[in-house]
Simulated assay, not measured.
Amino acid sequence: MATSEQSAKTPIRSPVAGIAPYTLKKGEEYMSDAQLEHFREILLAWRKELMEEVDRTVEHMKNDAANFADPADRATQEEEFSLELRTRDRERKLLKKIAEALTDIDNGDYGFCKSCGAEIGIRRLEARPTATLCIECKTLQEIKEKQMA
């Protein structure tokens, strides 16, 4: 089992390549202007990547759509397109969450739990910039969801 010290040293991977994790400065206030700008940069870059992927999918489906004579080939293509569209639908929902996170940054609410108001934490936000719940509230939510299932 990992100790909190070990997990504190575990590198956090940003959802966007090329953006280094935020380095806290000694005595820095939580959700300082620099931190907010860092997360805005991550969210905007992530949104841009997702939108580019949407454009690629549209082009792929336009260019590769064919009316195959063989039913098996047609079914394969339809399944491939179906999987792509399901992925894009998940990304559409993610784009909505990114927009909400950017609004929260603008409103000064970013980084604080929507349920209890506690700090979500820089490391959690680095791992999931669209997080709206602190780890305790998210854990409780997941437990409740499992009980309802």
Rank of each mutant, 00 (worst) to 15 (best):
E119A: 13
Y30E: 08
A127E: 06
K9Q: 14
I143S: 04
Q6Y: 03
L43T: 10
E84F: 01
D70A: 12
I122V: 12
E59C: 01
K138I: 03
K114V: 13
N63A: 12
L24R: 14
I42C: 10
N67T: 10
K25Y: 03
D55R: 11
K146Y: 06
T3H: 10
T10S: 06
C116Q: 09
A72P: 00
A75S: 09
I105C: 02
A8T: 11
R124V: 11
L36R: 13
D73N: 12
A149L: 13
N67D: 15
K93C: 02
F81I: 11
M51W: 10
A131W: 05
Q141Y: 08
A101M: 07
L94F: 00
L94C: 01
D64P: 02
E126C: 03
D73E: 14
L44K: 15
R88C: 07
L43F: 11
L125P: 08
K144T: 13
D89T: 09
T103A: 14
T87A: 11
N63M: 13
E53S: 07
M31H: 00
G18L: 03
L83G: 05
N67E: 14
T130E: 06
M1T: 11
L43M: 13
L125C: 05
E119K: 15
R86N: 15
L85D: 03
A127Y: 03
S14Y: 00
L24F: 07
H38T: 10
E142Q: 13
A65C: 07
N67P: 00
I105D: 02
K114W: 04
L125T: 05
D89V: 02
L133I: 08
K96R: 09
Y110G: 07
T139R: 15
E119D: 12
S7Q: 12
E49W: 06
L140V: 11
A149T: 11
T76A: 04
F81M: 09
R74Y: 13
Q77P: 02
A34Y: 02
Q6I: 05
L36G: 01
F39Y: 10
A20S: 14
N67W: 09
A34S: 13
A118Q: 14
E79A: 13
R56I: 02
E79Y: 08
L24N: 14
L83P: 00
F68I: 09
Q6E: 15
P21K: 04
R124N: 12
I98Q: 03
T57N: 10
H60T: 15
